[in-house]
Amino acid sequence: MIKSSLGVLLSLALSVAILPNMAVAKTATEKPAKTSKKSVSKKVAAKRVSKKVSSKKASQKNKKVAAKSKSRSYAQRSQKPGFQRVSFSSRTSAVPAPATAGDMAGLNLTRDPLELSSNAVLIMDQNTSEVLLDKNSQVALPMASITKLMTSLVVLEANQNMDEILQVTEEDIDTVKRTHSRLAIGSQLSRANMLHIALMSSENRAANALGRHYPGGLPAFIAAMNAKARALGMHSTRYVDPTGLSSGNVSSARDLAKLVVAAYQHPIIRYYSTNSNYAVEPGRHVLHYRNSNNLVSNPDWEIGLQKTGYISEAGRCLVMQATIDGRQVVMVFLDSKGKHSRLADAARVRRWLEGSKPSVMARPIVAQQG
């Protein structure tokens, strides 16, 4: 009994002594495991951050490489023969002009020694009627605002009061080409001022108002225009309105030369058509007009009469009476391309007249098929 009690006591004492050591051992083995887990977690996080940074750097690098590649590719393309950068303005200027009536008739295939861009031309000595240059001069073509020369001729020969005040109405609005006019509905000007800006600046509403205020109105005025054309021997000419906005107004270069000679007899037409600028007051505001032909302001030119014209069917047109090298010359250019081509044609003819014998070209130029 005493032995068993002593055994129990010894057993308890041994367990008490062993337990703390076991706890310490357990703690020692668990603590390193816990620390290792945190370390792994931090390492994983660090790797992720590193991977993210590396990925970002790689992306930026790829972008730079792509940009370089694109730049290199563009440079290589630009070095290829035939490649050319074209600006916006160059593309718009390269758009071809619409085909005119002369183009559709094949007149653009005609070649002349002066290489004029106008499809129909007549250069004539005003005093002798000698034809110095003839290019498709007998073909009837739309004449655009050259029409206004006949409009002015009919107005003046009707002996109407030039001081009478005419009013612009809705009847004068352009319904053919939808062109703009600075003369508002209700504008009032004298017949003289209407004629002035119609001849000098091709003011369409002014020209139409002149026709409407003719005795019998527009129908009678147009009939008078055609009657005057017949009287002048303009057999290829027809008028349908006083402005020239309709392509139904047609004439030949040969006929228009006759019109220029007839219109030149009127000092008012000579003065109005060659005036460089003019101001009118049709209402509350003063309107300043400029001549549609820049040559009238050029001191190198001696122009006695002129008129310009343009609609898409007619191309650029110009008629002039000018004194060149002491000789009075009538010049007609129809169906030209480009804003300044008709003026360039006039300059070429002038240089030719000043530097050669015009009689050499006093014969029709035969079309050569291109």
Rank of each mutant, 00 (worst) to 15 (best):
L6A: 14
L9K: 01
L12N: 03
L14H: 09
V16W: 06
P20F: 06
M22W: 12
V24Q: 07
T27N: 08
T29N: 03
P32M: 10
K37N: 12
K38T: 13
S41E: 15
K47I: 13
S50F: 03
K51Y: 09
K51L: 08
K51Q: 14
K56T: 10
S59C: 01
N62W: 11
K63V: 15
V65G: 02
K70M: 15
R72G: 08
G82V: 07
R85K: 09
S93F: 02
A94Y: 00
V95K: 10
V95F: 07
A97R: 06
T100E: 10
A105P: 06
A105V: 01
G106K: 02
G106F: 01
N108G: 07
N108T: 04
P113E: 13
E115P: 00
N119L: 09
V121T: 14
M124R: 06
M124Q: 15
Q126C: 05
S129C: 00
E130L: 12
V131R: 06
L133C: 10
D134V: 02
N136M: 09
V139P: 04
M143G: 06
I146C: 06
I146L: 15
T147S: 15
L149E: 11
V154E: 07
V155E: 13
L156M: 08
N159K: 04
N159H: 15
M162D: 05
L166P: 02
T169Q: 01
K177D: 14
H180M: 07
S181Y: 09
A184G: 09
Q188R: 09
L189W: 01
A192C: 00
N193W: 03
M194V: 08
N204M: 13
R212Q: 11
H213W: 04
Y214S: 02
Y214N: 00
G217I: 01
G217R: 04
P219D: 15
P219E: 08
F221I: 03
I222D: 04
A223N: 10
A224I: 13
K228S: 12
A231W: 07
M234Y: 00
H235C: 00
S236I: 02
T237K: 07
R238T: 15
P242V: 13
G244Y: 05
S247T: 05
N249C: 01
V250L: 11
V250Y: 06
V250N: 05
S252F: 11
S252L: 02
S252M: 00
D255C: 03
L256A: 06
A263M: 03
N275V: 12
A279W: 05
P282N: 01
P282C: 05
P282V: 05
R284V: 03
N293M: 01
N294H: 11
S297N: 15
E302Q: 11
E302T: 08
Q306E: 15
K307Q: 15
G309Y: 01
G309F: 09
G315W: 10
C317G: 02
C317L: 03
C317W: 02
Q321T: 04
Q321D: 10
T323E: 14
V332S: 08
S336E: 14
R342V: 14
R348Q: 13
R350G: 08
R350Q: 14
S356G: 05
P358K: 03
S359C: 03
R363P: 01
P364D: 14
I365V: 11
V366C: 04
Q369V: 13
